[in-house]
Amino acid sequence: MVSETTDESELIAALRYGDQVAFAELVNKHTPALLRAARTYVPSHAIAEEVVQETWIALVKGVGKFEGRSSLRTWLFAVMANIAKARGVRERRDKEALIAAMGPTVDPSRFHGPDDPRAGAWKDPPVAFPDSPEGSVLGRELRAIAQRELDKLPSRQRAVVTLRDLIGVDSAEVCELLDITPANQRVLLHRGRTAIRQTLEDYLTGRA
């Protein structure tokens, strides 16, 4: 971790002198995650590429002022988010977030009803997921299904799950990037993850 930061500050220093190799290295390292994140803000891959290109231009222009108080990645994501938002992010987002917060995430029919002495306990308990080490056939299948389901999530849930679970951005940073409260971030993460979990369970039960 420490050496990574050191390497990066050397690359940034080289970038100040217009070093093309340093630029290419930084681009290779950060662009895939930036594109993935940008794609959650804008409606097409082409627009995501434009947003990411503008982000890199902003870095090259502003690199003299980049003080390294935040990590480069944090800086890039924040700039990318601003550019994407200026590009007209879908407007119904807040409404969507509210809608997303309603209703249970697990089908109520899987629990005993209120008249039962076991009210609220599992009637149809979840199936255990078999071991699926990374690289195994099942692991690859689950990954593919998770990816497909992720693409179907409402945009704000998709944005939070992508940033948290695919890119590994921490919750405080996600709140800042998406202008949401910690509670809302948690709700969106919860709904997104549980929807994907359900799809994986459906797949595993259908398969058995």
Binding site: Q20, F23, A24, V27, N28, T31, P32, A33, R36, E49, Q53, W56, I57, V60, P126, A128, F129, S132, E134, G139, L142, R143, I145, A146, Q147, L150, V161, D165, L166, G168, R193, T194, I196, R197, L200, E201
Partner: peptide
């Protein structure tokens, strides 16, 4: 199961950077 889901999501790797897009960025630079 939820933990396995998070692991599955984390194993989704980034696509390789499209060389055409990389070229475009290098030209802009």
């Amino acid at each position: 199961g939820l933990r396995t889901t998070v692991t599955a999501l984390g194993s989704i790797t980034d696509e390789h950077l499209d060389p055409v897009f990389l070229d475009r960025l290098m030209v802009a630079f």
